[in-house]
Design a protein around this nucleic acid. Structure first.
Lengths: 135, 135
DNA sequence: CTTGACTCCGTACTTGGGTACGGAATTTAT
DNA sequence: ATAAATTCCGTACCCAAGTACGGAGTCAAG
């Protein structure tokens, strides 16, 4: 499958055709030039791009953020790219911390739930209390 | 501040009054009984609850999921709670993995961006490629 | 050369998570 | 006791991220 139509792309990436078109409108995907009143063709690079978008989304990036990330891949404007990436990285690390905190809390909950069987009132809420020192 | 009104609660939790009311409608917060045609009062436990909601949200839980999590804190229906918690935990661990992957990718990007200064084309997209083996 | 599938494009609808608005009632300050 | 601030409540609006729809054009097969 070297080049395909929009539905092939959508299928390969596991999304809806409409989603592809939506991403094009948003500028996340570039619409390949239309060959004179006809039908556009897409290659594997586009599939990769869509998969990237989906992966980034699962992690919690917005489409706007993802657009920025995708621009980093251009190769040009390196220092600018770097600044964005650093900002994003700080962001990601914060998320990681929060997530680790909740992971611990949930794991404890499961544990104590297994052990105590009855009077639960577990560390779930407590676990997130010390999470917001400076807003 | 032992008990306060809705605006006090909102302020203490760093959210909008409307947001509190929205959460009440959603069942995330319980509206304390209204004292005869009057004004409801809230205590610190409610503040904690709102902070929890916000913390959980930052991590990527939906309000529905958070509602479930909050119910786990009730102490009753332990086995049920445990099942939900375990499911959520698997979820969280998946998110953690994804997030760690992107953290690595971003860190590399920043690195190579700092080093190569010019021809970037970094590991960002590649980093998420092997992330979806089984859909 | 017509039928059926697919593409293109615009517009509209949906869901999640709120925010804003407006009128009535109640509380607080003077 | 009256004005200003709050609360209560319903309804309506907003943005993000899609999904659905409908008409017109195009392409591939029989």
């Amino acid at each position: 499958m070297q080049t395909t139509t929009i539905s092939g792309l959508a299928q390969a990436a596991g999304v809806n055709v409409e989603t592809i078109r939506f991403y094009q409108r948003r500028g996340l995907l570039i619409e390949p030039a239309k060959p004179l009143g006809g039908i556009r063709r897409y290659d594997e690079a586009e599939v990769a791009r869509v998969l990237f978008i989906k992966a980034a989304q699962r992690i919690g990036f917005t489409l706007d953020e993802i657009a920025q990330l995708l621009q980093l891949d251009d190769g040009t404007r390196c220092s600018e790219a770097r600044a964005i990436a650093e900002h994003k990285l700080a962001d990601v690390r914060q998320r990681l911390q929060d997530l680790q905190r909740i992971e611990t809390a949930l794991a404890k909950l499961v544990d104590c739930c297994a052990a105590s069987r009855g009077k639960v009132s577990c560390p779930l809420i407590a676990a997130l209390q010390p999470a917001s020192p400076a807003v």
